[in-house]
Design a protein around this nucleic acid. Structure first.
Length: 139
DNA sequence: GCCAACGTTGGC
DNA sequence: GCCAACGTTGGC
């Protein structure tokens, strides 16, 4: 089981939109970055991820699950781009902000801190458990 | 709203 | 194949 982080600007696609899709989930499409795509290719059914709101909020707000492995991105004809499907699993009781993450020494190496522009990122198990604890959410 | 950082594109 | 120019992202 691997852990990931999906980043989105809430005005474009937010946690509420994801929750509204229910168990059917939704494609995580529109990714046009090779690194991010390669991480999605590595994802397996049942992998879990953080859902992160960028820009104004800059917070991890919930947990999602991979419900379909990488397949063609339906928003482009370009065969280079692929995406996975994810569904909302549960929200954070308390969203964990980027500031909190930066203040936490054991999270200082998170990709979110090191390479903030990457929209799909791997998360280590230690980071996963720590952030879940900070959000008062079952890991 | 600004700007730095990064990735991608295209000319040579 | 290199690198300058450009566009986009996202923190501040």
């Amino acid at each position: 089981m691997a852990y990931w982080l999906f980043k989105s600007e809430p005005n474009t696609w937010g946690w509420d939109d994801q929750v509204a899709k229910g168990d059917a989930g939704e494609e995580w499409d529109g990714v046009r970055n090779y690194q991010a795509r390669n991480f999605m290719r590595d994802m397996k059914l049942g992998d879990l991820g953080f859902f992160y709101h960028s820009m104004k909020e800059k917070s991890v707000v919930g947990i999602v699950e991979v419900i379909a492995e990488a397949h063609a991105d339906s928003t482009t004809e370009d065969p280079r781009w692929e995406c996975v499907d994810i569904k909302a699993v549960r929200p954070f009781v308390k969203p964990v902000t980027l500031d909190q993450i930066k203040e936490t020494p054991m999270l200082a190496d998170m990709v979110l801190v090191k390479n903030s522009r990457l929209s799909v990122q791997p998360v280590t198990q230690a980071e996963w458990q720590k952030v879940c604890a900070m959000g008062q959410t079952q890991s």
